[in-house]
Structures are given as structure tokens and as C-alpha cells.
Amino acid sequence: MRILYHHRTLGDGAEGIHIAAMMAAFRQLGHEVLLSGVTPSLSPGSSHRLIGGLRSLLPRVAFELGAAGAGVLEYVTARRTIERVQPDLVYSRHARFDVATLAAARRLGVPSVLEVNCVFTSPEYEQFEPHIMRQMARSFERRSSELATSVVAVSTPLARALKALGRDDVVVIPNGADPSHFDPRRCDGMVVRNRHGLDSTTLTIGWAGILREWHGLDLLLAALASVPDVRLLIVGDGPARPALERQARQIGVQDRVVITGRVVHEDMPDYIAAMDIAVVADERTGVASPMKLLEYMSMARAVVAPRKENIKDLIDEGVDGLLFEPGQADSLARTIDRLVADPVLRAAIGASARRKVERERNWRRMAEQVLTSVSSVTRPLRTDG
């Protein structure tokens, strides 16, 4: 099968990792994958900087109008691309005002999949990134969900948000991890521990990602203050770092906290291997499928995460992870302390988490489920519009 993978994103950060992983998974299944989009390269470059610069410089209304208007040219380009490469399937990652490629696929009778990681006009997302022209944006989101042969959402609450747009047959396929890359048997956490002054006997709580105010690291620091004799390894860097360092000094845990600075994704397995307990402190949208949680699980770490519906798509509580009440530092502290006190439980949860990723929550299995979702849906493949 020849798959045309379309995205209208910068293709960097977590989204770039996701795109590259899904393309690799389709190829592992024996399919040919071609990449198209506004920024078809997944390597940072001038087009990434240009789009990022325009987004920051233009008034929001101008950027929204431009993003919507770009669809006219994109439709022509997408149609020519589809006619030229003759794909058997168009796979499109959902983005704001992005309907052109799906419309071209529908017009030419080519099946399509819309992968949705968020509904930009949903209340859960609008509170963080509101639209100036929300009704127009919502009409685009509704149209994209109508055009696709199959719609895949990464979480149950996200599928519900898509149902509110009028699409009832959404397939829930949470994200995955690469168990061959995130493999505890191939990693050496002691190298990282030695680099950061953590000896082999130090029980270490870990967190990884970009340090931003909405990731709940302030909650994790507050919980740490109630759990004695452990260290906290924060893997990453970001704009919230000064505030976190200030909070750590104020509550007297600065000597128990290590912030590594930025670590490239390729090196992340060794850093997760240095953790005994891995934490997702918050998930602000309530609809995402956090890849770092799955990477923790793939590394056979004992994971702790907030008790939210999207997280429950990934974790069977008490089997392959423990959950705490969202936003409650005392609940987080009690949950961590339970794992600190019970090494047998830590090992059992970590082993179960690893098995889940190997069997279910990996990119190859996701690709298989995506292709099954297309074959199981019967929808008109051609319109006269």
C-alpha cells in the first residue's frame, strides 16, 4: 500500500516524534509512505523558523485568516500530489483550518484517515489557546471530520469532543512508544545517576519534558516536601525553571532536586532508566495521550499519573500504574510514598507496564489499528464538490 502522510505542523517536538514514529510503523508493516505538508521535512530548518516567526509577528486574526485562506492553494497542490503519486490511502494529522488535503482525497475517491490529537475549538483547548474567529475555526474542524473516511482520536474524551462536531464513529487509538528504543535492557541509568550525583542507593523520583507552568511541577515539588529520603530528577529545561528553583529553595528541598537541562529524545531512555518512580504531574487538557507516560511504561518504571479519563485509557490502576487525585499534592505524595515503601510493588507495576507497551501500546500496533479502522468503515469516497 502507498500512504500519503499529510501534516500541517512545524513537525518538531512531540508532534515531530509522533509523525516520524507513525511513518516508521507503517513502513515496518511493509507499506510505502510519502510525506507532504506545509513543512514536509521533519528536520528543523528555514521553513520551520519562517512559520514560527509569522505566528509570533502577525496579529492573531491575520494569522487565522491566512491559515484558512492557504487552503485554496493547498487544495490545488494536494490534488496534484494525489494525482501524481496515486496513493492508496491519505493519512492526515489534524491541524487548525486544515481541510484541503482531505477534500482533495474525497474528490478523487481516495480513502483517508484523520488523526486527531486535540479539537482546537473545544472548551478544554480554547481556555488555553482561544481563537479570534472561533465559529470559522469550528466549521473547519467539523468539515475535516466529515471528509475523512475514518477518524482516529487518541483518547476517549477526545472522541466525545469529536462526536459534538457530528462524527459518531470515531475510533479511539491512544498513542504508543517504541519498545525497542525505550528498552530497559539496553540502557544504563547509572551513567546518568553518576553524572548528576545520584548514587545507586538513592531512590529517585523522575519527570521528563519541557518545564512549563502547566505541567504541574510545582505540585510535584510540593509533594516531594512530604516524602523524605528521596531525590527528584527533572529531565529537561524550559521557561518555568527559575520559578521551580525558587519554589524548591522556599520549601527547603533544593538539595534534593536535580534539573538536568535539555536532553535530546534519542538519549531519553538512559535518563528514564535512572528513575525508580516516574511521574506525570498534570495533563492540562484532559484529552491528550501523553507520550512521556508511555515511554516511562516502556522502560518498566513504576508510573504515577493524575486520575483523569484520558490517562485511564493508558493505565489500569494498580496493575501498570498508580493514580492520584488531580491537583492535590497530598494525594500525589501518598501515592509516591506507597511506591517508595514497597519495592515489590514498584517492580510488579513496572513489569506490567512494559508488557502493555510490548503487546498493545506501541507504534506498530497503532498503525495496524489505523489500517483496520479504514477497512471497517464504508463511506462515500467521491464527491462532486
Rank of each mutant, 00 (worst) to 15 (best):
D282P: 06
F128G: 06
G261A: 08
L57Q: 14
N310L: 09
E126D: 14
A302R: 02
Q250V: 08
R361S: 15
L147A: 11
S375H: 14
V116L: 05
R195M: 00
H181F: 05
M275A: 08
R167S: 03
R346I: 10
R382S: 14
V344W: 01
V192M: 01
M23A: 14
L244T: 13
W363M: 02
L4W: 00
A78Y: 02
R107V: 05
I205C: 04
K312S: 11
P380Y: 10
E266R: 13
V257Y: 00
G176W: 01
R212H: 12
V113N: 09
E126C: 07
V264Y: 10
I251F: 09
L233C: 04
A225Y: 04
I315Q: 01
V263E: 08
V90E: 02
Q247F: 04
V377Y: 06
H131L: 04
G45C: 13
L34I: 15
V253F: 06
R246L: 14
P130D: 08
P130N: 08
A159N: 05
P380R: 12
A164V: 13
V170T: 03
T335D: 03
M190N: 12
E317F: 05
V116N: 07
H7Q: 12
I51T: 08
F63H: 11
G11M: 07
R359E: 15
R284Y: 14
R359P: 05
T39Y: 06
L10Q: 12
I132D: 11
K292L: 00
P184F: 04
L10H: 15
W214E: 12
R246Y: 08
R195T: 14
G318W: 05
R96D: 15
F324D: 05
A67E: 13
G206V: 02
L10M: 13
L58A: 09
L203M: 06
A273G: 08
L233E: 03
A164S: 13
M22V: 10
L114H: 10
I259H: 07
H31Q: 07
L108N: 01
K292Q: 02
P157N: 10
E129H: 15
Q328R: 13
K312W: 00
E309H: 02
D320G: 03
V370R: 06
G209V: 04
A105F: 02
K292E: 07
I336L: 14
G52Y: 01
